[in-house]
Design a protein around this nucleic acid. Structure first.
Length: 414
RNA sequence: GCGAUCGUAGCUCAGUUGGUUAGAGCGCUGGUUUGUGGUACCAGAGGUCGGGGGUUCGAACCCCCUCGAUCGCCCCA
């Protein structure tokens, strides 16, 4: 008989299991539950949007020239011939829902969501084809206070997760449309003047997305970038005033940040505030949380002109930064050393669990080895059930209060 | 799409300048202690050495191709 070939997992997908040394599944869930707790403190309501959308939702909003659209989308035709795409980010879908589901009536609305996203990329550290983000948006708020609130939320979340050490908020403004365009023109002029010093990649970017040259990792590019004009000289008075209100708000709220006047964001729709929380602990993937203001997006998608600001953070990246692996020991482990007491053990499990004590049973393999096997499971109390001199016998070991609790629950069952 | 590194047991890894029947620890299964016991001892199962081709008397080891993983470039959370 031919050996059956087990299908391999798809490249860039992951399987996670709790209770393992790296304990990714539990770390992952800790990030999500912390996010859900903190978002309530800021009045963000839960939103759910589909995992796939009409391709146009992403193609139109992200910008046709971005790599995400041109080569990273998981797009397919459904049976009706419609082009659909697995979402590569949250913002576009939320913006679509805001328009099509009448969420405008709640404006300004604070939204929080999380779930899987998909991009066709080469996987590497902290980067996957199916990855997961938590996401927060404020739609319908033009004032800088919204940016401040959103950044406070992000900062608070990172502190709650205990990953704020070694993660810094870098902040920039891209200005309003006029400021951004003027700066962009100045940058193009600057880079055109140094064409001969630019890498091949950057020459390509020059035509496609010149702002991206600013964070090129190429050494030659960086020399040119160092002399490139910053945004500040091109900011309109209004844009400068907006940015000042954001930074004043952060100061008042006690959120630390660093200016990076070279910081740009990859997607076309950003205006004004742009920010990234970065770390050097994740290899080449330094950004752990990123976002900004995208005032033009909703109008771009056919809605009314609607200001909005938001951020997203990679759950895997946050999970990798967590110090504690958070393996939760179980309260009680029962070693069943004589199968005659199986029914006692089962009713004991039920009684323990109804008292709110987590419990598990070791009842397989050689009865003589079950005690040793149970002893290897981290637990608050180790209970043995055996028959001695023809009578059921209960043995309880462990530190703290759990052994006594377990004994008082189990003793009456013998 | 490009580059570098790496693929040996379920897991973590040894394996000498190419040389008999490829090893260890953990895990798993069974046994030993007639015991109030977490750590011991014995045994067993488990391997197409990622796959294919080549060089050689002989390949886990050298060469080529291929698949996969990791990390990096691009891009991005």
């Amino acid at each position: 008989m031919a050996k059956i070939q087990t299908p391999r997992p798809v490249r860039g997908t992951q399987d996670m299991l709790g209770g393992t040394p790296d304990n990714m599944a539990d770390r992952f869930s800790h990030v999500v539950s912390t996010f859900d707790r903190v978002r309530k403190l800021y009045g963000f309501r839960r939103a759910e949007v589909p995992v796939f959308e009409a391709t146009a939702v992403f193609a139109r909003s992200l910008g046709e020239s971005t790599d995400v659209v041109s080569k990273e989308m998981y797009s397919f035709e459904d049976r009706g011939g419609d082009s659909l795409t697995l979402r590569p980010e949250f913002t576009a879908g939320l913006a679509r829902a805001y328009i099509t589901e009448g969420w405008q009536q709640y404006a300004p609305v604070r939204l929080a969501t999380h779930g899987p996203l998909f991009r066709y990329e080469r996987p590497q550290k902290g980067r996957y084809r199916q990855f997961h983000q938590i996401d927060a948006e404020i739609i319908g708020a033009a004032e800088p206070l919204a940016d401040v609130e959103l950044l406070c939320f992000a900062d608070h979340l990172l502190r709650e997760l205990g990953v704020n050490e070694g993660v810094t908020l870098t902040l920039n403004t891209l200005g309003d449309a006029q400021s951004r365009d003027a700066w962009r023109d100045a940058l193009v002029a600057h880079f055109e003047g140094h064409r001969d010093q630019l890498s091949e990649d950057s020459l390509d970017r020059l035509g496609r997305n010149p702002l991206r040259i600013l964070d090129s990792k190429d050494a030659g590019d960086q020399a040119v970038v160092a002399n490139a004009p910053g945004i500040d000289a091109y900011l309109s008075d209004e844009a400068a005033a907006f940015f000042e209100k954001v930074t004043d708000g952060l100061k008042a709220a006690g959120v630390a940040w660093q200016r990076n006047d070279r910081l740009v964001r990859g997607l076309d729709y950003y205006r004004h505030t742009a920010f990234e929380f970065i770390t050097d602990r994740l290899g080449a993937q330094g950004t752990v949380l990123g976002g900004g203001r995208y005032d033009g997006l909703i109008e771009n998608m056919g809605g009314l002109a609607t200001p909005a600001v938001g951020w997203a953070a990679g759950i895997e990246r946050l999970a990798m930064l967590l110090d504690e692996t958070g393996v939760q020991p179980i309260d009680v482990v029962i070693a069943l050393e004589d199968d005659a007491l199986l029914s006692t053990a089962l009713s004991g499990l039920r009684a323990l669990r109804e008292q709110g004590l987590s419990a598990e049973l070791v009842a397989s393999g050689s009865p003589r080895k079950r005690y040793d096997k149970a002893a290897k499971i981290p637990a608050g109390a180790l209970v043995s059930l055996s028959v001695r001199d023809g009578a059921p016998h209960l043995g309880v070991r462990g530190e703290g209060v759990i052994p006594a609790q377990a004994e008082s629950v189990l003793k009456p069952l013998l």
